[in-house]
Amino acid sequence: MHSTIQNLIDIEDKIKSNLAVLAINKLPKIIGVSKTFKMNQILPLINHGHIDFGENKVQEAIEKWTKVKVNNPNIKLHMIGKLQTNKVKYAVKIFDYIHSVDSEKLAKKISDEQIKINKHIKIFIQVNIGDENQKSGVAINQLKKLVSYCKEINLKILGLMCIPPLDVNSSTYFKKMSLLNKDFNFSELSMGMSSDYMQASENSATFLRIGSSIFGSRS
């Protein structure tokens, strides 16, 4: 068995047994964050039946996934990086989910472009949960306004997304996100990466964005 498949199975088992102890029965979906990895490293997972993959650059996603998605129409591609408005037109064509909406300007552009090609992208709103200057994401006090705007322009918002500050216990931020998500009555929550996916899954994350723990370290 290919190492990436074994890594994925190990992660799934770990999450499953941990959540069973906590009597949580909804298992999160794992997005295999395949950015910077070549398709020959990704194919074993596709052949294994894994369908959720994450990229953070539009151009790289187009080059890697256009043909593969035609041959595997069940694959769901997630845009998990910062999205520039000038790339939205291309992003909307290749991606099924966008996890990084953090402004009205970006929301409007996505809305306009998806109307043109009659496609409904699934959206997460990125929250700057640690209130960090260098991080993308909408400030908590602006979140309600952005959610209302996205609904007005008929974006399909599934839930919220965050990247907590580095080198801290992520659980505090994940708890906060879980409550925020419930406040808006959203069904999905995108949080947790290789370093903290266990804490995220304990706090109602429904999509985990896991890269290096599946694919190995990036060169």
Score class of each variant (00 low, 15 high):
Ser3Phe: 14
Asn7Gly: 05
Asp13Ala: 13
Lys16Val: 01
Lys16Pro: 03
Leu22His: 06
Leu27Trp: 05
Thr36Cys: 13
Met39Tyr: 02
Gln41Phe: 03
His50Cys: 04
Glu55Ile: 01
Glu60Trp: 10
Ala61Tyr: 11
Ile62Glu: 03
Lys67Gln: 04
Lys76Gln: 15
Lys76Thr: 07
Lys76Leu: 00
Met79Thr: 12
Gly81Asn: 15
Asn86Phe: 08
Lys89Gly: 02
Tyr90Asp: 14
Ala91Asn: 11
Val92Pro: 00
Phe95Met: 10
Asp96Arg: 13
His99Tyr: 09
Ser103Tyr: 10
Glu104Tyr: 03
Lys108Ile: 02
Ile110Leu: 00
Ile121Asn: 11
Ile125Trp: 08
Val127Thr: 08
Asp131Gly: 03
Asn133Ile: 03
Asn133Trp: 02
Gln134Met: 12
Val138Ser: 06
Asn141Phe: 00
Asn141Gln: 13
Gln142Ile: 01
Leu143Gly: 04
Ile153Tyr: 03
Leu158Ile: 05
Gly159Cys: 06
Pro164Gln: 01
Leu166Asp: 10
Ser171Glu: 15
Phe174Met: 06
Ser178Thr: 04
Leu180Ile: 07
Phe186Val: 03
Ser187Asn: 08
Glu188Val: 00
Met193Lys: 14
Met193Phe: 07
Asp196Lys: 02
Asn203Val: 10
Ser204Glu: 14
Ala205Leu: 03
Thr206Asp: 10
Thr206Gly: 06
Ile210Trp: 06
Ile214Met: 06
Phe215His: 12
Phe215Gln: 12
Gly216Arg: 07
Ser217Leu: 10
Arg218Met: 05
